[in-house]
Design a protein around this nucleic acid. Structure first.
Lengths: 257, 257
DNA sequence: ACCTGAACACCGTTCAAGT
DNA sequence: ACCTGAACACCGTTCAAGT
């Protein structure tokens, strides 16, 4: 799968301008058709292209119709966010019995990276939002139960779950932001390291000069992986500490008795 | 300091409408005055309020004047980002001799959190950008030289530096995004945990139900701290591994000789 | 009852026309 | 030479008027 999950492709989703050709039962557009079209629009034109007007045009209806499907643009964005999580859950599938909690989280992190970067426009608009919808609910349950398998104390289970997901989405948003800059801004950003940082004086910026090669080659994905691994390790260590505290407490209690 | 660093307050910066009262040497606005006014605007009205038109109005000039000071809005945003880093560097000050590299990074993380959250509008617009300016250069040098003090191999020094700063800014942007939602969206987001997640069935969402109390009370700052500590620990462990590898390699070489 | 499209109050950006 | 403000091509959102 993976290749074309987003558009479950309703009536005329594949052709950009499906104005007079298709069958004419496209009166009163359904929410799902709007969401699908929004995904295509977002993928094709980036965050600046995802507007209510263009979406209406894509669906060949007046823009005011959209406002009966979604209270406002924010509601549309939340629906897109929900759908993204749905796709990710689909791709994650069932968690195999023998998979460690670490590997489950690594797999979730990879899939999240893939889809959040495939739709940078949606990521940027929703990475810090809570939808409260069914897909998000299932994702929360999946992540929490996975962190529970680690054997952390309750407060830490929640703290690490939130640290994991917020960090992951924050770094996805970082990457999405870069990949959806206007071409010229993009160039300005990309070239900064070679354009300005390669020419700093060794006298005033010795560390920068020493590391210039690595600075120009490190990738956002490598950074993402490093952050995810750091959080997994931290969770592992918290488990170890927790077990040690428990053992100590128990032996103290035994001592008393 | 800390309280009022941003507005170095030029002529009539304190009053909102300084139209006809002040002295009239405000012809031909200087870049710095524009940046200061933009900070006030951003702090007062949030990301939606930071527009070229409103900024011009604040400065009591025509909007087209701004376009001689800044090529476009992106250039203004980068200038604001530079200024933010300047303020943070100021606050960080000199690194005491006896401060460990971990504590230096903790201090930088705290100050970054404070200022990025004080100006959420600017954070959201610039958290993933590279300015290439002098303040950013000094910040890069400071962070790189601090990570060098840890004793990591070169590639890892850069990887951890980038993981540290990108994660920090990503989480600041997350927090900034929440704090600058429109009041009603804000409410919707805030209440999601109590409104929807407290009422899930224990049958289908057991882990969520088990942790509902912690889910509603964990703060963004706690998550930020947990992420920073995870990355510091990961860097510490990478150092240990590196030292062990070096020792092994050296003893192998000794064995051969 | 549903749909339409014009209108409102905004954006970033540019440029001919003024001084 | 500098400044002005009107204009262009957009936004999200609403609502009277049509069918």
């Amino acid at each position: 799968m993976a290749k074309n999950t987003a558009p479950k492709a309703p009536e005329n989703a594949e052709t950009g301008s499906a104005r007079s050709t298709g069958p004419r039962q496209r009166r009163s557009v359904r929410r799902e058709a709007a969401v699908n079209a929004a995904f295509q629009l977002a993928e094709r034109e980036g965050p600046a292209g995802l507007t209510m007007r263009k979406l209406a045009q894509e669906l060949d209806v007046d823009v005011s119709i959209l406002y009966r499907l979604f209270r406002d643009k924010d509601a549309l964005v939340l629906a897109l966010c929900e759908r993204t999580i749905e796709i990710e859950l689909d791709e994650i599938g069932d968690v195999p019995e023998e998979e460690t909690w670490q590997d489950t989280l690594r797999r979730i992190a990879d899939i999240t990276w893939a889809y959040q970067n495939r739709f940078p426009a949606i990521t940027l608009l929703s990475f810090a939002r809570t939808t409260g919808g069914p897909a998000e609910q299932r994702m929360v349950e999946l992540l929490l139960s996975t962190f529970e398998r680690a054997g952390l104390p309750p407060t830490q289970t929640v703290l690490f779950y939130r640290t994991f997901i917020d960090t992951a989405l924050g770094l996805c948003a970082h990457s999405a932001s870069l990949s959806s800059l206007a071409p010229e801004d993009r160039e300005k950003d990309d070239s900064a390291w070679t354009r300005v940082y390669s020419h700093l004086s060794e006298r005033h910026y010795p560390a920068t000069v020493r590391h210039i090669d690595d600075l120009t080659t490190v990738t956002q994905k490598a950074i993402y992986t490093a952050a995810v691994e750091a959080i997994l390790s931290a969770a592992e260590h918290a488990v170890t500490e927790h077990l040690e505290t428990e053992r100590t407490t128990r032996s103290e209690r035994t001592d008393k008795a």
